[in-house]
């Protein structure tokens, strides 16, 4: 699997390179600046790109802008964005085209390398990987109008909902929560019924539906 890595910090570049190579990824290009990143993405069209939000030369959101620009050129180009902080605004911008193949994680998540590599593969295969922090921010900013149906969920169901919003499949959720697959499916069905959402078969569409629900809470 071919990867383009955009990261300006030497230590992290080195660490991520090792991590990815250890797990059998092939690094097509490793770049340090926003413009380089954009051209590398368009040239190599990798299976997945790992992108730091803040890159030279402006040290603003160069990396994010390069990733968005590349996805406008190559729709659905899988991009996993890494950052020292997560912002709902950026998450929305990344998810806006509704095509999946998007990840948005805190840099700390690389500590748990198995889960992290799992997220990379999920994004590469067109799935979604949202940081738990983003999801918890979404829950926290619920308006009272939409928080009411959420309040009807059991604690377990809320946990399942959060994991679904992170983009995990039923199998992953069942493993994580030590539940059987059928139990997770039952929880999911119950959640969708309580929130009045149409149950979708594809994991990716399910994520988008859940996030859209959480976001639309304020409408």
């Amino acid at each position: 699997m071919r990867v383009v890595l955009g990261e300006d910090q030497y230590l992290l570049r080195k660490g991520l390179t090792h991590l990815l190579e250890d797990h059998g990824f092939e690094l097509a290009a490793v770049v340090e600046t926003g413009p380089d990143l954009l051209s590398a993405l368009l040239q190599h069209r990798p299976d997945v790109a790992l992108v730091d939000v803040r890159l030279p030369p402006t040290f603003t959101d160069e990396g994010l802008q390069a990733a968005l620009a590349a996805r406008r050129e190559v729709p659905g180009l899988p991009v996993l964005v890494l950052s020292q902080h997560v912002e709902q605004l950026y998450a929305r911008e990344l998810l806006a085209d509704g095509r999946g193949g998007i990840g948005y994680l805190l840099k700390d998540r690389v500590f748990d390398d198995d889960t992290f590599i799992d997220s990379v593969r999920r994004v590469a295969s067109g799935g979604t990987a949202m940081d738990p922090e983003v999801v918890s921010q979404l829950f926290q900013s619920m308006g009272p109008a939409r928080a009411q149906p959420l309040a009807a969920l059991t604690a377990r169901e809320r946990e399942v909902l959060a994991l679904m919003a992170e983009g995990r499949s039923n199998a992953a959720i069942s493993e994580r929560m030590s539940l059987s697959d059928s139990a997770v499916s039952k929880h999911a069905a119950s959640i969708f019924a309580k929130l009045d959402l149409v149950q979708s078969t594809s994991d990716n569409r399910r994520v988008l539906a859940v996030i859209a629900y959480l976001n639309s809470s304020r409408a």
Partner: peptide
Amino acid sequence: PVLAERGLVDAVRTLALAHPL
């Protein structure tokens, strides 16, 4: 950080997004 990266307007948008109202 979002103020440093995006400027005032997007930073205020972020505030709006994180707000329960």
